[in-house]
Write a protein that binds this DNA or RNA. Structure first.
Length: 930
RNA sequence: GCGGAUGUGGUGAAAUUGGUAGACACGCUAGACUUAGGAUCUAGUGCCGAGAGGUGUGCGGGUUCGAGUCCCUCCAUCCGCACCA
């Protein structure tokens, strides 16, 4: 009987759906296990074969866990707010909700065809009000919280108010608070605090809130008409769409993620994540330990504070450089320098972020005319302005030590400023060519530091700076607070309204704040975001609502929690359900979210944990990044000036132009000529120069999958031709999940052949028929060897070798006529996670209850069946294997040696010499050294 | 520049702790069955060599009885960050 995969797959998909086979709840005595895929954004293009790669792997693992006695949560949903749907809406006038709904339906249909074990009763969509109600709720909690530096935790803002009532705000306390460095807030006493107006007090509190409205330089994308977070900007262009991005000073809703910088960094160590992702996050957080040093101004009040990690070079300072945006710039600029400085600042304002990045090597700057005094030598040091200093990092000012910093060196060389050596470098180093930036060498020209190593000098000078009141130790982070408002329509409304300039949160009982209808998805004439078009967009008909919406990452920052209790109307998820399932055990998804989603989700998780809503600090225990699947484009070669196409093997004899051809017309590089002719009218009368075999061979190239390259492979088409089980196994067979690889259908027939062969094991003369006798030891051995390997493979997520091991097993069973019920029944359970449809069918035919396979327990490996009496020893001479000899495993080292030495082969290879040494590892190898 | 990862046949790859390199699959070659199929089966297939044999995991070196695996130098490719003081 033929393996009719289409019939079988349809039958079981229908069965699973109508019987709710994959539904899970908390009423189980089995331990819980949570397997999660990064939910997709439902784009108009649908899924291509790259998307399911991770889904298949996690589905196999989830099913495996289920078979081995876990209560497995394996949900799926859609990240359904976002720019593409809105861009499409602007073009067509169609409501984004409509296209989103259609796209979700299409995705769902494609996913269903692949036989995933998702519990769809838990489906969530970030754009549905019942979901974003809780996204808004979390936002309000963030607004009502601050980060207490003493406890390193988020606490209610009411506790801060109480603290300020009792203590006021000291500069020491202010210094300790991570994340508010860039805010302009001054210390005050209790009396001053109490004397503030309510508005003044609120303005102070705004500097502490974890979700806050603040003025800062933001990434503004004019084309998209919205601000973007740092991770949404790639090399000065928007990640979505690739439009230019500018710096702009704007009042914006932001997230004080920098408060959590230290905890986000520390938390990484314990995570079972790929090293590259952890490293990327560490890099993005960018912790650096150093000291801030105050250089007193000459002829002005106060000082310039710089941040440095190299205080050992303090005696090598020859000038200070401050950022063009530095707050003291205009005050410090003397009248002689005014014109030049103003011109420079105007120029650097004009330069977009993109230009600055593209133009790193151009050195520009200007002298302010003012000086500071060196804290120890009291020598005057000129203050320069340079745009290589970033306003947003450290103090926006650096002490320039040209001899030991590459950028300072270039700046000094360009403007002929002094270069003062304070570390004796390696002899070979030439100061005409560049700075000595190594942290090695002996200090010179540095008074009390002379003769010390760099490390010692850092310790001593730091102590002196602190003791003499010139500065304090400081830790800086590259991580910036994340801009949270988007001037777009298709996102969660920010649940705030305004009385005058003061924002207020709407009461949580009134959530959700529904996304209003608008006539157009464009900004208003006054430049307000699209929500400005909504009729009466006012709280209680009086106070204007916030018009920005939340960014794409808002909904995805906590969705893993909603799956635990998706329809709860009273809280984001019930505490007992959160306690039962816990955090995600296995998270599967792409590496492109390293600094976006994965960092924000960790931030919100820590916040919710501080609030006591969840009992864990990290959302995802183990993370696996599935690799990208690249497209494999096919080409035909048109002879120049003709409608003649020459096969790839013969093309070098002609002058040809390669043309992309739709990969659906190509099988194993062979062109479907008739299909090609009717593909496009211009090829209707095409002529062909064929290979001697009579075939037309196409050339190929590996590129990104894209419509314009005709290399997009949809899973639907392959499911149609080969079946879902074949596609599932083939995607796994391609190679390790973590690895990127080109898509190539070449090998898929091999996997299909395997399933056919497996199917044939159960059939004799076209009928389902098994050998009911007791299997031989040999057959048990085949089975148990496979059980062991498959379990090992699954435990280390090595799905590709798993598929291979199934092939080996079926090959061996076929060869040895091992069609015993006692062998094939456990094998069917073993294979079920990989190929759920064919195994369900055979499971039923074996006489089991339909649909019960999912709950069957996984076969266990019995070592007794693998006990061997003999072993084929490889015998090596000088490490090179020459021949094999089968010996009983019971032999000891001496007996093995005696046996090997008596072999004719051994005598031949010894060539009359006697071995210097004989290494024998029983059960492993024999090696003779001659 | 800094950080991470990866280099193995014609191709995708395997080799979990140092112990038979290339499992499994594609492709290719030859053959069988065949009114032909994108079907199935058999044999072969790293490279050089007629063979004996030699040689072989990016290059060069080291440790070891033994290295794809450990150590050092270099090269290439991919990814991330990048004027971060």
């Amino acid at each position: 009987m033929e393996y009719r995969f289409q019939e079988i797959e349809k039958k079981w998909q229908h069965f699973w759906q109508s019987n709710q086979t994959y539904r899970v709840d908390e009423n189980s005595t089995n331990p819980p296990y949570y397997v999660l895929d990064m939910f997709p954004y439902p784009s108009g293009a649908g899924l291509h074969v790259g998307h399911p790669l991770g889904y298949i792997a996690s589905d196999i693992y989830a099913r495996y866990k289920k078979h081995t006695g876990f209560n497995v949560l394996h949900p799926m949903g859609f990240d359904s707010f976002g720019l593409p749907a809105e861009q499409y809406a602007i073009l067509t006038g169609q409501h984004p909700a409509k296209t989103t709904k259609e796209n979700i339906a299409r995705y769902r249909e494609q996913l269903d065809k692949l036989g995933f074990s998702y519990d769809w009763s838990r489906e969530i969509q970030t754009s549905s009000p019942s979901y974003y109600k809780w996204t808004q709720w979390i936002f309000i909690q963030l607004y009502n919280s601050w980060f207490n530096p003493t406890t390193s935790k988020a606490e209610p803002i009411s506790q801060l108010i109480q603290f300020l009532n009792e203590n006021g705000l000291s500069s020491a306390f202010l210094n300790e608070i991570p994340g508010i460095m860039d805010a302009d807030i001054k210390p005050f006493t209790v009396a001053e605090w109490k004397g503030f107006t309510i508005e003044q007090q609120q303005n102070v509190l705004m500097n502490f809130r974890l979700a806050y409205l603040g003025e800062s330089f933001v990434n503004w994308c004019p084309e998209l008409g919205t601000v973007l977070a740092n991770d949404e900007v790639v090399n000065g262009f928007s990640e979505r769409g690739g439009y230019p991005v500018e710096r702009k000073l704007l009042k914006q809703w932001s997230m004080r993620i920098t408060s959590y910088a230290q905890r986000l960094l520390e938390g990484l160590d314990a995570l079972d994540w790929p090293e590259s992702i952890k490293e990327t996050q560490r890099n993005w957080i960018g912790r650096s330990e150093g000291i801030s040093v105050r250089f007193p101004l000459i002829k002005h009040e106060g000082w310039i504070e710089v941040f440095t990690t190299r205080p050992d070079t303090l005696y090598g300072v020859s000038f200070l450089t401050i950022a063009p945006e530095h707050e003291r710039v205009s005050a410090l600029c003397t009248s002689e320098q005014l014109e030049e400085v103003e011109a420079y600042i105007a120029l650097s304002k004009q330069r977009s972020e993109r230009e600055r990045i593209a133009d790193v090597n151009t050195i520009s700057g200007v002298f302010t005319g003012s000086y500071v005094a060196h804290p120890f030598t009291k020598e005057p040091i000129p203050i320069w302005i340079g745009d290589y200093v970033l306003a947003g990092y450290g103090t926006g000012a650096v002490m320039a030590v040209p001899a030991h910093d590459e950028r300072d060196f270039k700046f000094a060389s360009h403007f002929s400023l002094p270069i003062k050596q304070v570390i004796q470098p390696q002899e070979s180093h030439d100061f005409n060519l560049g700075a000595w930036t190594e942290k090695s060498g002996v200090l010179i020209n540095s008074q009390l530091l002379n003769g010390l190593s760099v490390y010692e000098a850092i310790q001593i000078i730091t102590e002196n700076i602190v003791n003499e009141g010139h500065g304090s130790k400081r830790i800086n982070y590259k991580l910036r607070n994340a801009v949270f408002g988007r001037q777009r329509y298709w996102g969660e409304p920010i649940p705030a309204y305004f009385k005058g300039d003061q924002p207020y949160m709407i009461p949580v009982e009134m959530l959700p704040l529904n996304l209003p209808e608008v006539d157009k998805y464009l900004p208003t004439e006054d430049g307000d975001p699209p929500l400005g078009r909504a009729a009466n967009w006012k709280f209680q008909d009086l106070f204007e609502y916030e018009k920005s919406t939340m960014p794409g990452w808002a909904g995805s920052s906590w969705y893993y929690l909603r799956y635990l209790d998706p329809s709860n109307e009273n809280m984001l998820a019930a505490p007992d359900k959160i306690a039962y399932w816990g955090s995600v055990d296995l998270y599967m998804g792409g590496a492109e979210h390293a600094t976006g989603h994965l960092l924000y989700a960790r931030f919100w998780c820590k916040f919710l944990s501080d609030l006591g809503i969840i009992p864990f600090e990290e959302p995802f225990k183990k993370l696996i990044n599935q690799g990208m699947i690249l497209g494999r484009s096919s080409f035909v070669y048109r002879v120049e000036g003709e409608q003649t196409f020459v096969s790839a093997g013969l093309k070098d004899a002609y002058r040809t132009t390669p043309i992309h051809v739709d990969i659906s017309l190509v099988t194993n590089d062979r062109l479907n000529i008739d299909g090609f002719k009717s593909w496009r009218s211009e090829f209707k009368n095409a002529k062909f120069i064929l290979e001697p075999s009579g075939e037309y061979l196409c050339g190929y190239e590996v590129e990104k999958m894209s419509k314009s390259k005709y290399n997009v492979q949809t899973p639907d088409e392959l499911v149609e031709r080969f079946g879902a089980d074949t596609l599932r196994m083939y995607e796994m067979f391609l190679g390790p999940v973590e690895q990127s690889k080109p898509w190539d259908t070449k090998g898929i027939t091999g996997v299909q052949g395997f399933l056919k062969k497996y199917w044939r094991l159960f059939h004799l003369n076209g009928k389902f028929e098994l050998n009911e006798a007791k299997p031989s030891k040999e057959h048990y051995k085949i089975l148990h060897k496979t059980i062991r390997k498959i379990r090992e493979d699954l435990d280390r997520f090595s799905f590709n070798t798993g598929v291979s091991n199934f092939m080996i097993c079926v090959n061996e069973l076929t060869e040895s006529k091992g069609n015993y019920r006692e062998i094939l029944e456990p094998l069917t359970v073993l294979l079920a996670p990989f190929a759920p449809h064919i195994t369900e069918e055979l499971w039923e035919k074996l006489g089991n209850k339909p649909g019960s396979l999912f709950n069957a327990s996984y076969p266990t490996f019995n070592p007794d069946y693998l006990v061997e009496s003999d072993y084929e020893y490889p015998v090596s001479f000088n490490g090179r294997m020459r021949f094999k000899i089968s010996l009983p495993l019971s032999l000891n080292t001496e007996e093995i040696q005696a046996n090997v030495l008596s072999q004719a082969e051994t005598i031949k290879w010894l060539e009359g010499k006697s071995p210097k040494k004989i290494i024998i590892v029983p059960g492993k190898i024999v090696n003779l050294v001659i």
